[in-house]
């Protein structure tokens, strides 16, 4: 498997797809995962009562890959450093105090980063500007947050695409936080294409939006397809807490791994993760694309 696919599909190890025509009901030429296969990594949030459920082991999880129950090899509250892309709407409605509060929220998140963690900054209006590539240098990140962007419109889907691609460019635990206070008015890329990027790219995406904006199908689908969640804030003053909450939550996600067995190798794999016996809220990618 190529390095690209490692980033894109969250598959950990080299893959050999074995053609096995012995399984009943399969076409002879259709490859399936057999004995030497990928290890699939699933980034899972398990929360109950607003808090992460701790202390779960592999045996506590049930994972279905295309409806076939899999053996979970590993499950742990991950210690892998988070690499976060902040994609921030700086359109015409985010000016003055609002812009300052958004920048403060970004700065607080930067301040929370651990020594091994990295961040990148994407600012957008109709223009999508990668203000900082991944770095641990907090001075650089804070400076990037302060740089204004020309324009007044909102290219939300374009910016999301950029953040997902950028986020998937690093190993580790990629996280994308998208903030927008309005609907898309200027993107070149369609939401369908960018949601397809979300399926292919590695990062878990969280969205932060204003309560007053109401439903946003694109953001809802984005977080659903990447196993993240959408937070609504009542005012820009609450952004700082929302960003901090996302970073904390991202550090408290489980990493599961399993070796897919008994399912065709290529194409879209629907993945369902459950924690039987608990009334916990489980969030994970609903699937992955295998080459």
């Amino acid at each position: 498997m190529t390095r690209n696919c490692l980033a894109v599909f969250g598959v950990l190890f080299a893959m050999t797809i074995a053609a096995d025509s012995a399984l009943a009901g399969r076409r002879p030429q259709e490859p399936i995962f057999a004995s030497r296969v990928d290890t699939v990594r699933v980034d899972v949030s398990v929360r109950q009562g607003g808090r992460t459920v701790e202390g779960l082991a592999a045996a506590d999880f049930e994972v279905l890959d295309n409806g076939v129950r899999q053996q979970v090899d590993f499950a742990a509250l991950d210690q892998m450093p988070v690499n976060v892309v902040l994609a921030l709407d700086m359109s015409g409605s985010v000016k003055g105090d609002r812009l300052a509060q958004l920048q403060e929220a970004g700065a607080r998140l930067v301040d929370m980063l651990g020594p091994a963690e990295r961040a990148a900054v994407v600012a957008f209006t109709e223009l999508v500007a990668i203000r900082s590539a991944f770095t641990a240098d907090k001075t650089t990140l804070l400076s990037a947050l302060q740089q204004p962007v020309e324009g007044t419109d909102t290219a939300l889907t374009d910016a999301t695409h950029a953040a997902l691609v950028l986020g998937g460019s690093r190993t580790g635990r990629p996280l994308v936080i998208v903030f927008s206070d309005g609907a898309d008015t200027a993107s070149f890329l369609s939401s369908e294409l960018v949601l397809d990027t979300a399926r292919r790219a590695g990062p878990v995406a969280y969205a932060v939006a204003s309560v007053r904006d109401g439903p946003n199908d694109f953001l809802d689908n984005l977080v659903r397809l990447t196993g993240g969640r959408r937070l609504e804030v009542s005012s820009f003053e609450r952004l700082s807490d929302a960003f901090a909450e996302i970073l904390s939550e991202s550090r408290e996600r489980y990493l599961l791994s399993y070796t897919p067995m008994g399912v065709p190798a290529g194409g879209w794999h629907e993945v369902l993760v459950r924690v039987p016996g608990r009334r916990a809220e489980v969030r994970a990618r609903p699937g992955y694309l295998a080459p």
């Binding site: 190529t2 690209n4 980033a7 999508v128 790219a201």
Partner: peptide, 14 residues
């Protein structure tokens, strides 16, 4: 942006 999306769909994230 169009080329970026296209190459991503072709499995070329870099």
């Amino acid at each position: 942006l169009g080329l970026s999306e296209l190459t991503m769909a072709q499995g070329k994230p870099a």
